[in-house]
């Protein structure tokens, strides 16, 4: 029924969404590019003229640049691995028959509702504080020296907090996918003599590949831009500065818009590399 008339109507219906997103993408992008070639210090003289690629060179040669890229990739990668691995195990468990499945599911989903600022605050203060945190009590109870999480293990702490926030999402998607697995397939493989482990490896895991892709895609989108978790906990100190946070500091704290914009362009390039890589997998996997 795709007549010429309905095509035109369809295009018109898509227009608002497309135009808005195009504007949302292009206008700030072009402005960022513009600023990135300028020496621009809003509080110290404003626009001080064109400087070519100076900002780009300075941003990269700054001692915090490479560590921040590493930190970003480390946090994103670690959270992805942790949430997907634990998510698969948890989904397998929740798929088993049990009493009160609905309530357990609510308990497991709950962290997703908690806003990042809140979860960062309660983890930082009530659990990870070296004096009054619950972990400190636990460590002391077992005779160990309490850890000053935020300063001694800042990246690990942030990874832990963010994983806690995203585990529900991974679990839920994977659980939904497991529930759609045809039980006859499992029974057939059982008849063929496959052990539980082999059944998981050869049947359950391949069945989950699409769901895992979705988790990968969506979580990466959100994780690349985590901000509140760092803003509230370490404020970027103790080696926990991500690229996002570094740029944030350049723009807002040191009020160097030119330099920050150059950093923004780097961040956009990094995001695009990840995006191209992800879209390849996803495009392939979603066509199934």
């Amino acid at each position: 029924m795709a007549t010429q008339h309905s095509r035109t109507a369809a295009r018109a219906m898509m227009a608002p969404a497309v135009v808005l997103l195009l504007g949302w993408m292009l206008v700030p992008l072009i402005m960022t590019l513009y600023f990135s070639f300028k020496k621009y210090l809003p509080l110290r003289g404003g626009d001080l003229g064109w400087v070519g690629f100076d900002n780009y060179v300075r941003f990269v040669s700054s001692s915090s640049f490479w560590p921040s890229v590493q930190t970003t990739l480390l946090i994103v990668g670690a959270v992805l691995v942790i949430t997907i691995a634990l998510g698969v195990l948890l989904a397998l468990l929740l798929d088993q028959p049990m009493f009160g499945q609905g309530i357990v599911r609510i308990l497991v989903i709950a962290p997703f509702f908690v806003m990042p600022t809140v979860s960062a605050l309660i983890w930082k203060n009530m659990f990870m504080d070296a004096n009054y945190g619950l972990f400190a009590y636990l460590w002391e109870f077992f005779g160990a020296e309490p850890v000053a999480w935020m300063s001694q293990a800042s990246i690990q702490s942030i990874i832990m907090i963010v994983s806690w926030q995203w585990l529900p999402f991974a679990t839920l998607i994977l659980l939904t996918a497991i529930q759609s697995l045809d039980s006859e397939q499992l029974e057939a493989s059982e008849m063929d003599g496959a052990t539980t482990l082999k059944r998981f490896w050869h049947i359950v895991l391949p069945h989950l590949s699409r769901a895992i892709t979705v988790v990968l895609l969506i979580q990466t989108i959100f994780l690349l831009s985590i901000f509140a978790e760092i803003f509230v906990t370490t404020g970027g100190a103790f080696g926990s500065k991500t690229l996002t946070y570094l740029i944030f500091q350049r723009v807002l704290e040191s009020q160097n818009v030119g330099l920050g914009s150059a950093g923004g362009v780097y961040a956009i390039i990094l995001a695009n590399i990840v995006a191209i890589f992800l879209m390849r997998i996803v495009g392939k996997n979603l066509d199934k």
Binding site: A10, G263, G283
Partner: peptide
């Protein structure tokens, strides 16, 4: 319901705009 050859591309492009780091465009906004 009226998909064209480019529908899938448009959809993926839309998702990809989510990958633009907000901080990169904070000051212009």
């Amino acid at each position: 319901f009226v998909p064209s050859r480019r529908t899938k591309d448009i959809l993926l492009w839309m998702l990809s705009t989510k990958m633009l780091p907000a901080v990169g465009v904070l000051y212009p906004i």
